[in-house]
């Protein structure tokens, strides 16, 4: 799988700006375009894995409602095509979050437990009436997300979900240094920062102001 020698990732990793310890920042540490440029330093096999991760993360952030059958199909397709254990871990974690969230929402709407997908489907069905599906020990973010859901605070729900995923990627990233996994976890965390900066209205306003100032100063330079 990893055809590159162990020294190949040093340059790419050192060329990426420091990713902050929290995702609640005003802007991404590196633009999508610049990040894509840097990723061309990887060899073809690694670029394919990176593309799989990016495609999944893109799929995962789509807001459109999907049926259980859609999610099940996508999950099976990914598990059939992806060999890298960390990428599989990333997908399994996000699918678990998706299933638990689907369960919390469905119960609020008086629907049946979700049919897709992952390790917790049967567990959720069994503990359907328990407030946290008896999963709070393994998934400590569930109580706070459930409370935010009940208070109708969608931004807070999204913040809690991103924080849960962020913490997991950060813990994993601490185990790797100058390896391909470091790059994958950088991408996964970059995606969260990007997602947050697009959600957060205050950060959005600041980014707009910064862009406006840059554009105006650029114009002023040209006029002079």
């Amino acid at each position: 799988m990893m055809s590159s020698s162990s020294t190949d990732y040093y340059m790419l990793i050192a060329s990426l700006p420091f990713i902050p310890r929290t995702f609640e920042v005003d802007q991404v540490p590196i633009s999508r375009l610049r990040l894509a440029e840097r990723l061309t330093l990887l060899d073809e096999d690694d670029q394919q894995v990176v593309e799989q991760v990016q495609q999944f993360l893109h799929w995962d952030r789509q807001d459109s409602e999907r049926t259980d059958a859609d999610v099940q199909r996508e999950y099976e397709r990914l598990m059939d095509t992806i060999q890298n254990s960390l990428v599989r871990d990333i997908i399994i974690h996000r699918m678990d979050v998706r299933t638990i969230m689907s369960g919390l929402r469905r119960r609020r709407w008086g629907l049946d437990p979700p049919a897709a997908v992952g390790q917790y489907v049967a567990h959720i069905r069994k503990h359907w009436q328990h407030p946290d599906f008896q999963l709070a020990r393994k998934q400590p973010w569930i109580p706070s997300v459930r409370e935010s859901l009940e208070k109708h605070e969608p931004l807070q729900v999204e913040r809690e979900l991103l924080r849960a995923t962020w913490n997991r990627w950060t813990q994993l990233a601490d185990q790797y240094y100058f390896s391909f996994e470091t790059i994958l976890l950088y991408l996964a965390r970059w995606e969260i920062v990007d997602r947050w900066t697009r959600l957060d209205p205050i950060a959005g306003r600041r980014r707009f102001d910064t862009l406006l100032q840059e554009t105006l100063s650029e114009h002023a330079r040209i006029d002079n």
Binding site: T7, D8, Y10, M11, L12, I13, A14, S15, L16, P17, R38, F178
Partner: peptide, 12 residues
């Protein structure tokens, strides 16, 4: 290893 990291850091 260190040289590649140095060259990568030059980009940033």
């Amino acid at each position: 290893r260190a040289g590649q990291a140095a060259v990568g850091a030059l980009l940033d």
